[in-house]
Write a protein that binds this DNA or RNA. Structure first.
Lengths: 226, 226
DNA sequence: ATCTCGCAAACTGTTGACAGTTGTCAGCTC
DNA sequence: GAGCTGACAACTGTCAACAGTTTGCGAGAT
């Protein structure tokens, strides 16, 4: 008997419905499926090589996550969010993430905070000296920050709202102009964490997220000035 | 087309899967299905008078809500939460609800705050003068409080975590001894809202929720001291 | 031309059956 | 008696087909 452990943790979800959920979520978040677009169950199931049963189960979860909206007898649509809804999402994210950072300031082991700082160093060096690079590691930074709170339900809630924000921003991706600014703001947050000053870290984070929101709103309203 | 109105106001969801979701959620939250219990798809579908297809869709949503856990090829189980998880849920709830009350202090129309006060009056008179009554309107109070923030995603997040807390507390329902105390604390929160003092309202609310958590933990640990 | 009515195509909601896996238990081995 | 083995029962995952609803379109009337 080899010590073959069960693939419970990392292995792909062994079930069509579970894998379809991840595939569909990725398709929505990377724009393969656009906001407002209708999901045709027959076409999708054929494209995924499965039948409609597991596909519908995956869709139910997406609906529960708020990424699609199901209308009875009429179909499911990729959600399309208004500027107001984007603001609400950010407000929610601020509530969660500032609380997370306060918890982190109190309880996170020093080593993890140091890791976060080193990660910013790596990002900066790979970004080069010009301020026009994008900031692909931004979501990763916030995800790591959330994990410092060591509160799984809180992390999950942040993950959920983060996905909705990503969808709401759709093609209005990060402006490269803000990349350097964002990185600097991240540095100040880590510094406050290093000082174990939760209040300061929280206020810096709130300002950072507000800037991010305003930047997104500007792009959004420039595209659709309704 | 950013119409976010719900397709139906009160009528049942017109679909088996949708109605089953609500029925199952109620069964879990009222204890008809106990934590740790396994959901047999065949038995359940027969009991609900539907087939396994829509039932499985409902179960997927319950899994997404965190009320059940699905194990591949082995079945779905009503989640059973540890004391630690209950604490994490409360921590999350504190983050959300204190933020909500701050928003309420800033933006809620006075009329709604007055309503909340009158609701407490009604509760008190129906509770009688003895301090031993239960406090069935407690969840309602918190739900109304959340709605004052006028932020649907925030309200939804609070609803979700509220359900998990209800399940985690299971049969350790509110102690009647705390009913009067809780009502008094609710009054102070509304008073702070009336003063538009968000910081004060938030700190009162945090203390209130901490008391609630400690009360629940005491009952929980008395029942299962491991 | 425009509006209305009705029919047909397309699609979703639901079902019952099939396939593969898990858990159990009797029987056998040591 | 403890532990292994293999078959059986129960259950989940998946599929293909059926049923009811929505939608688009065209014939006919105004």
């Amino acid at each position: 008997m080899t010590e073959q452990n069960r693939p419970a943790k990392l292995g792909p979800v062994a079930t069509f419905a579970g894998r379809s959920l991840e595939v569909l979520r990725d398709m929505i978040l990377d724009g393969t499926l656009s906001p407002g677009e209708r999901l045709n169950e027959v076409h999708l199931s054929q494209a995924l090589g499965i039948s409609r049963g597991p596909l519908r189960e995956a869709i139910q979860r997406l609906a529960s996550e708020g990424l699609v909206e199901a209308v009875t007898h009429r179909g499911v649509y990729v959600r399309s969010f208004s500027a107001r809804e984007l603001s609400d999402f950010y407000e929610l994210r601020i509530a969660l993430e500032t609380h997370a950072v306060r918890l982190a300031a109190r309880y996170a082991p020093q080593e993890r905070i140091d890791e976060l700082g080193r990660m910013l160093d790596d990002t900066e060096s790979s970004m080069g000296s010009d301020a026009t690079g994008s900031y692909p590691a931004d979501p990763d930074f916030h995800a790591r920050l959330a994990r410092l709170a060591a509160n799984p339900p809180l992390i999950q809630a942040l993950t959920d709202v983060g996905r909705k924000i990503q969808l709401a921003r759709a093609r209005s991706a990060h402006q490269p102009r803000r990349a350097r600014t964002a990185l600097d703001e991240h540095r100040t947050i880590v510094a406050a964490l290093d000082d174990r000053d939760g209040d300061h870290a929280a206020s810096l984070l709130e300002a950072h997220l507000s800037s991010s929101l305003n930047s997104a709103l500007a792009v959004l309203r420039a595209a659709e000035p309704d």
